[in-house]
Amino acid sequence: MKKHQFAIAAMTIACGAAHAQSNVTVYGSLDAGVAYVNDVAGKSVQRVDQGTMQPDRFGFRGVEDLGGGLKANFQLEGGFATDTGASTNASKIFNRYTTVGLSGDFGAVTLGNMPDIVFDYAGKLSNGFQLTNFYLFHPGNLDTLANTYQFNNTVRYTSPAMSGLTVSAMVGFGEVAGSASKGRNTSAGANYVNGPLRLALAYSKQNDRAAGYAGTFLGSLGLGNAGTVFNSLTTWAAGGGYTAGAWRLNALYTQSTVDLPTSSFKQKNIDLGAAWRYADVRTLNFGYTRSKLGAAKYDQFSVSHVYALSKRSEFYVQAAYQNAGGAAKFAIQNNTGVAAGDSQLVTTIGIHHLF
């Protein structure tokens, strides 16, 4: 009897293993270009920049069909620099995503290290993403649209699409004994896609986060440095996109509030962008951004041309110009360095390849 029961169990396991189907995808992006910046600390600079059109990255993505509409999935993704080969975070191999989860008719539950929902939903409507130019993300990236800060120890739920509407919520645990809020990160949002129309609304709050990447920008305004720790950083974002024929239009508003132990300040950003695909392999991009932090303001104008060499390779020429005004004495575009004056121009000629 016991042998009979064991044989049935073994057959059940074998059938289950035969039914489950899995696949793993290896993917990545390499991007490098020759850049010229007319003013970094008062001097012009020529350099090879990486990840301008898309971030340099490599990753593994896998899905296993467990049957009954249930799937297990994972993603491992790391960022690096094509120009040097270095990791963007020396302490983490997979510094962009390390996630595992389940998905089905109920939606999806994902656990691990991942960007917030402001990046995931609203970020795709920004000039930086839509016009494929890293310089167009906002000074200091306080609103996280450039994905320079991920949530650790995170649980995220994403609903199934309901007439084009998807909602998500996530929490990254601070894991500090005796304090549920210390180091905790939270985010939520809604994403609506219906034919040529896309709309997004998203929220994010990070507790006890070091300024890090934003330190250079804040330093130019006398508001901090890379080691400055925010009591909290709260971001709201709302935007939309529409495709009409050869034109793709995008608009986005973000507002980030930084609370320090003795003060607070708020950054507001407005993106307006347009991409015109005037031939099968040629696209012209135009963008304008207004960024304000208190009495400091920054106006940015951009133009670029992208030529598709194939479905995976592109040649591009880009230019972005920023003028600082009000209390802002120094221009500082994303990833360029602080100018000695109130204006800064950066141009790039490069090639991008996906695999």
Rank of each mutant, 00 (worst) to 15 (best):
T166P: 01
P115A: 06
Q255I: 10
N225F: 04
T243W: 00
S220C: 05
W247C: 11
V34W: 14
G273L: 12
V176Y: 01
K311L: 00
K43P: 06
S313M: 11
G62Q: 05
K329W: 00
L223M: 02
A279E: 01
I13W: 08
S44W: 04
K205F: 00
A190E: 06
K92C: 02
S126F: 11
Q75F: 03
F74V: 13
S163M: 11
A177G: 15
F60R: 09
M11I: 10
S91D: 14
A10P: 00
L201N: 07
L345Y: 12
R61A: 10
G69A: 14
N127F: 13
A72G: 15
G183K: 07
S103M: 12
Y135K: 08
G325K: 10
T283M: 13
R277N: 11
A17Q: 09
G219V: 11
T289N: 15
A200M: 06
G350W: 06
E64W: 00
F355S: 01
R290G: 00
P139F: 06
Y192M: 02
A200H: 03
S310L: 08
L223E: 00
M170Q: 13
A324F: 02
T257A: 12
Y253M: 06
L125C: 13
L136W: 10
K266V: 12
A246P: 01
L199E: 03
Q46W: 15
A190P: 07
T289V: 14
L102Y: 04
T52L: 08
F106C: 03
R198G: 13
L165D: 07
K3S: 14
A20S: 06
A320S: 05
G51F: 00
A20V: 07
P196A: 04
R312L: 03
G68C: 08
Q54A: 11
T84K: 03
V167Q: 05
M170P: 03
V176I: 12
A200I: 04
D342Q: 13
G112H: 05
L218G: 06
L223A: 00
R57G: 03
L284Q: 00
R248K: 15
S313Q: 12
I13S: 09
D299A: 01
A32K: 06
H4M: 14
Y213C: 02
V24R: 07
V109K: 12
S163K: 11
G287F: 01
G178T: 01
P139G: 11
F217L: 13
P115D: 07
T88F: 09
S22Y: 06
A279W: 00
A251Y: 03
H19R: 13
G33I: 02
Q5L: 14
T166L: 01
F80W: 15
N207Y: 05
V24N: 07
A339Y: 02
L142H: 09
S29K: 01
S204D: 14
S87Q: 09
A296M: 03
T347F: 05
D271M: 05
N38T: 04
